[in-house]
């Protein structure tokens, strides 16, 4: 009976022939790699570009703005941006790359990576939202206290910063719910099933 299963499985009514063109595959691979790399790196690249833009701007502000509080806020934003750049590099580096390990190791590696990122995203309020928003508020406050802007403009700026912060906070919650949780649930289930 066992041989019957194998016999059925290995016999096919259709003879499937694989047509393979090596030279085309090379071109396709290059195209595929470019496409996939673009997708994978897109998010991190955008963030890195933002940081690269922010750092020189706020370095200039440290020198240019006359208000002490705004100078301190600029320094704070630059320090945070540099720290964030290192964090992005770490996230990029830690992504599981090898696919030739065994099934269980592969699952565990992805599980660890997803859990780390989920934890990081879950605590994003403290390291991604609060530091730059605080910096921006202090920056605007420096201008307001130095009478460079009126209360109305100051309040509008604060409002924009707070709304952006709240939106980002809920966006991260959504990412955890729709991206990390379902994948982790599936991986955990699979690991459990495999070990049963």
């Amino acid at each position: 009976m066992e041989d019957e299963l194998i016999k059925i499985w290995q016999s096919s009514p259709k003879v499937e022939q694989v047509k393979f063109e090596k030279s085309r595959l090379m071109l396709d691979l290059q195209s595929s790699l470019r496409g996939l790399s673009r997708l994978a790196k897109y998010g991190i690249l955008i963030e890195q570009l933002a940081v690269v833009t922010i750092v020189p701007v706020f370095l200039y502000y440290i020198h240019w703005v006359p208000h002490l509080l705004s100078k301190i806020a600029s320094l704070w934003i630059v320090a945070w941006s540099i720290w964030y750049m290192f964090l992005l590099r770490r996230i990029k580096r830690d992504k599981p790359k090898e696919q030739d390990q065994n099934y269980l190791d592969y699952l565990n590696q992805w599980k660890t990576y997803l859990e780390q990122n989920k934890k990081l995203t879950g605590s994003a309020f403290y390291w991604y939202i609060l530091p730059p928003i605080t910096g921006c508020i202090l920056f605007a406050l420096g201008f307001y206290l130095g009478d460079a802007i009126g209360f109305r403009r100051f309040a509008v700026n604060i409002g924009i910063f707070l709304i952006t912060g709240i939106f980002t906070h809920f966006y991260f919650k959504w990412i955890i719910r729709t991206i990390y949780n379902p994948r982790l649930k599936k991986i955990n289930k699979l690991i459990k099933v495999m070990k049963e």
Binding site: K14, V15, E16, Q17, V18, K19, F20, D28
Partner: peptide, 9 residues
């Protein structure tokens, strides 16, 4: 287009 699977009955 480099890899195609052709089924022959």
């Amino acid at each position: 287009d480099s890899i195609r699977v052709i089924s022959l009955q």
